[in-house]
Simulated scan of single mutants.
Amino acid sequence: MAATPPTLRQRRLGAELRKLREQAGLTSTEAAARVGIQQARMSMIEAGRYGVSADRVRAMARCYACDDAALVEALGSMTGRRGRGWWDEYRELLPVSLVEVAELEHDARALRVAVLVAMPGLLQTAEHARASYGQNVPALRPYEIEHHVAFRIRRQGVLGGSSPLPYTAIIHEAVLRMGVGGADVVRAQLHHLIEMGEQEHVNVLAIPFERAGFPAAGQPITYACGPTPQLDTVLLDSDHGCELLFAEAQLARYRTVLDRMERCALSPAESSAFIHKIAKSL
Rank of each mutant, 00 (worst) to 15 (best):
P229H: 03
A24N: 11
Q38C: 02
Q189F: 11
D88F: 05
S77C: 13
M44R: 15
R62N: 03
P227G: 06
V158N: 10
Q189H: 13
P164W: 02
S281T: 13
Y167T: 03
R211T: 13
D107V: 05
P268S: 07
A54S: 14
A31Y: 11
T125S: 03
G83H: 06
K19I: 10
R211H: 09
H147Q: 13
V117A: 15
G134E: 13
A129F: 08
F209M: 05
I207P: 10
P227W: 09
L236D: 07
V115N: 14
D88N: 08
G25K: 12
A169P: 01
R187F: 03
D68L: 00
I207W: 02
E243F: 15
H148F: 04
A108D: 04
Q23C: 07
R154L: 01
V204D: 06
A33S: 10
S271D: 05
I45N: 02
Q219Y: 08
L258I: 10
L236G: 12
C63Q: 14
S77G: 14
L93S: 15
L122Q: 09
A150R: 15
L231T: 05
A217H: 13
L165M: 07
E100V: 11
P268C: 06
R154S: 09
A65Q: 13
S281I: 04
A273N: 09
E89F: 04
G218C: 02
S272C: 01
D184G: 14
V101Q: 12
R81F: 05
Q135H: 12
A74F: 06
Q23G: 15
H106C: 01
A47F: 08
Q219H: 12
S53F: 00
F209R: 08
D68H: 02
R155Q: 12
E73Y: 05
V257Y: 07
E73N: 07
E195S: 03
G36R: 08
P120Y: 08
G226E: 00
A224E: 03
T125G: 03
R91W: 11
G241K: 13
P220A: 10
L251D: 03
P268I: 09
E262H: 09
G160P: 01
L251P: 00
P120N: 09
H240C: 12
A3N: 12
E146L: 08
E144V: 12
T222N: 08
T233W: 00
G179Y: 04
I145H: 00
Q10P: 02
A131F: 00
M44C: 07
S43C: 03
A118W: 09
T29R: 15
L116C: 14
A70D: 15
A33H: 12
